[in-house]
Computed example of a mutant assay.
Amino acid sequence: MKKSGTANEIVKPIVVLTVICLVVTALLAYVNLVTSPIISESEKEAAAKARMEVLSEADSFDVVDAELPEGVTEAYKASNGTGYVFMLTTKGYGGDMKLICGIKSDGTIEQCKTLSHNETSGLGSKTAEDPYRTQYNGKTADTYTEVDAITGATISSNAYQKAIKSAFEAYEIVKEAK
């Protein structure tokens, strides 16, 4: 009678699977090494384009180094003094919402744009669409709350408004830091 489970029957599949895992891992690491700079450059270009969209009169931007309020991840000053752009993150109903907001030097919003979100399709996702987000255009720190919330998406609407509030708080900080 032949014994099952000899050392060769046990070790050989383990060695084969280990070699396969090592090869696949090495290939994934190589692909990451090759694509990482390309993805990073693409993200930088998309961010630069978004900054120009929300503050159209700007010629270029300089990063503002200041202590920013919660929810403001980055701040940029237009080189020609036309205003500031703020990168914002807030917690919506479905998770993080990433926004960008351009505030002109007179303290009014030129435009806000949603960069990414996980809000409920058809409800919270409407915060990323023009009828809602364009309500903020021309608003100031005193009037940004005078917008209509999206029916059935109160959490998403409130989160968007909270991000805009953070942008105005950051605006007050960075305009003083000239």
Rank of each mutant, 00 (worst) to 15 (best):
E169Y: 07
A149W: 08
T151L: 04
T6H: 08
T120H: 13
I103Y: 09
P131R: 06
Y30A: 01
A48S: 14
L123D: 08
P13A: 00
A48V: 03
S157Y: 13
I155H: 04
R51T: 10
S4Y: 12
Y136W: 07
V174D: 01
N137T: 11
T82E: 15
I100P: 10
T35K: 07
D96M: 06
Y30D: 05
Y144V: 00
K44H: 10
A141S: 13
V16I: 11
V15W: 07
A159E: 13
F86A: 00
K126I: 12
M97S: 01
A46Q: 15
V54E: 03
A58T: 07
G102S: 01
E53W: 13
L123H: 02
E119A: 02
Q135R: 05
S79G: 11
E110H: 13
K165T: 07
T120Q: 09
N80Q: 12
A46T: 11
E41F: 10
G107Y: 12
G83E: 04
K175W: 00
I155V: 09
S60P: 10
A66M: 03
A78K: 03
I38Q: 10
T6I: 05
E43K: 12
V174L: 02
S125R: 14
I20G: 01
G92Q: 09
V16D: 01
L123K: 12
E45R: 12
K104A: 05
L27G: 02
I164Q: 09
E70Y: 01
Y160C: 02
E169R: 03
T73D: 02
L33H: 10
Q161H: 04
L55A: 05
K2E: 15
G81H: 15
G81N: 14
D106T: 10
I173R: 00
E41R: 11
E110K: 02
I150S: 00
N158S: 15
A167T: 07
E176H: 05
G102H: 06
N158M: 13
T134I: 04
Q135N: 05
T120P: 09
A46W: 09
L115M: 12
P131H: 02
Y84G: 02
L17H: 01
G5W: 14
L22W: 06
S40T: 07
V23Q: 12
S36K: 15
D65H: 07
V54D: 04
T73W: 03
K104S: 01
A153G: 04
N137I: 03
E9K: 11
E67T: 08
T89R: 08
P13H: 06
S121L: 15
G94C: 04
S157E: 14
Q135V: 01
Y30N: 06
A46Y: 15
V72P: 04
T6C: 00
K98G: 00
V19K: 03
N80H: 11
I39D: 07
E67S: 06
L27N: 06
D130M: 11
T6N: 10
V64Y: 05
